[in-house]
Amino acid sequence: MSAQPSPIGEPVLELKALRKSFGDTEIIRGVDLAVLGGQRHALIGPNGAGKSTLFNLISGHYAPTSGDILLNGAPIAGFAPHIINRLGLSRSFQITNVFPRMSVAENLRISIMGRRGHRLTLFRSIRSLSAVNDEVDEYLQNLRLTRRRDSLAGDLAYSEQRILEMGMALATDPAVLILDEPTAGMSRDETTYIVDLIRRVTEGRTLLVVEHDMSVVFTLCDHVSVLVYGEIIASGEPSAVRADRKVQEAYLGEEVH
């Protein structure tokens, strides 16, 4: 797998005074956030804090009301999702979001052939695209899905669908990968498995992860930002954030596990 080079330590994704209102309700109330190259950044916050809205703004599903989103220094706020993806930001979804009536290999192939410029290729058979097909095999192996390559995605177990879903986002080879609750709805064992997998396949990449499970945050990430009521109230090393009084009051209750 080839990771796009992202300058280590430089901001890759920056949010500046980002705001989003739906009608009279302001959901995102001026968020400033910088995700640095190579950083594994967790976004945590209580339910309704606006994490999903923030992800939808970043990935182009919504246009922000005001403020800026910069990807590698270039503004992307309000761009269409496919443009943002091509510029190097890819997302996974909280709800399983695969192509249920296509095989696992074909699901991955959509991502890979798109990135390799075969978005509207009409006069070549997919079998002749050996670079694409080799890469599909490579991803299958890395995601430990080779065994399931010809199963319909809709027939996979839930945790496998989540892995595939993340793999599809990863296979567009983004500079920043954003994952929306990758372990939601999983058992303890499945969570351990997928966290380990994510660590391995996203080696060296810039990550932004929404996650509820604190143990996942602490194993996977090296930086944590806390979003409460549409504002970032703390940002820093996991241990520092854990110790922050504001965070403890607002989000974590009495104690952090």
């Binding site: 496919h82 890819s90 695969v98 249920p100 978005r119």
Partner: peptide, 12 residues
């Protein structure tokens, strides 16, 4: 199967 997802994979 899922037009939405295709859009987020970089396709117009």
């Amino acid at each position: 199967d899922n037009e939405q997802r295709v859009r987020f994979l970089g396709f117009n």
